[in-house]
Nucleic acid binder design. Sequence first.
DNA 1: CTTGCTCCTGTAGTTACTACAGGTTCTAGC
DNA 2: GCTAGAACCTGTAGTAACTACAGGAGCAAG
Lengths: 135, 135
Amino acid sequence: MQIGDLSRATGVNIETIRYYERAGVLPPPARQSNGRRSYGAADARRLGFIRHARELGFDLSSVRVLLALQEQPEASCEDASRIAQSQLEAVESRLARLLSLRDELSRMISECGRGRVSECRVIEALAAGQTQPHG
Amino acid sequence: MQIGDLSRATGVNIETIRYYERAGVLPPPARQSNGRRSYGAADARRLGFIRHARELGFDLSSVRVLLALQEQPEASCEDASRIAQSQLEAVESRLARLLSLRDELSRMISECGRGRVSECRVIEALAAGQTQPHG
DNA sequence: CTTGCTCCTGTAGTTACTACAGGTTCTAGC
DNA sequence: GCTAGAACCTGTAGTAACTACAGGAGCAAG
């Protein structure tokens, strides 16, 4: 499998695959006699794992830890669970934040009189925010 | 007001204030005779506006547009409303995505047997994801 | 044998900052 | 007047996770 095939198989950009190799989450693959990268099914599985973890919001350093854990099946599961737990907490706090943003944006839009900017609630809402406390 | 005062007044990092000047969202301020930046109340208001917009998830190019609109009060409100509307849509889609991530993470964690990695549902859940379609 | 595709390396650009190096200026205390 | 230490200045580089491009090589088809 050349890099283009792996890209099509996994939906991951070619440049991103090479980036993952530089970043140390994909091992340097074997090379064909002409110097081109040669991948196998294991690489596709690993890349699929990485892609899914990234889509779940794990950063590459967490992915590295998860991959290392995966390679020692006798190790404890707690590290993986802890990473997922902290990821869940981050997701919960992003959720709470986004919910309040949605409310504020909805309110801004519904209050916009569709008149002149001087009467526009959108800009006023943004300007008003500066006096409110923020955590 | 020197840059440090403005920073304390708005809660925006000094380096970030200088960055905003380079990025063209804060106008280059007057300088004291010693070359130091000198700000007024209008700058603090503008920076508060920028900060609030950034907290709402607007990127700097949207902030630039909103600021430009703000400066021509005779213009139509529709541009501002449209920016807020597209922002709302982005927030809604991020919300939907995060909600499903939360469910998947919760499930992963609750199914983790807290045994060996070989039985770990967290890693398995990530590996399994690769065969599922993603939009 | 030329066109065009895929691949290679290496570097620079992206966003929104943040951090540092190396230098100047101001302020307070002695 | 002198010195220590803030606070400020410019300019550059680092961050994450890519993305894009320059410039060159190999390969397959017509």
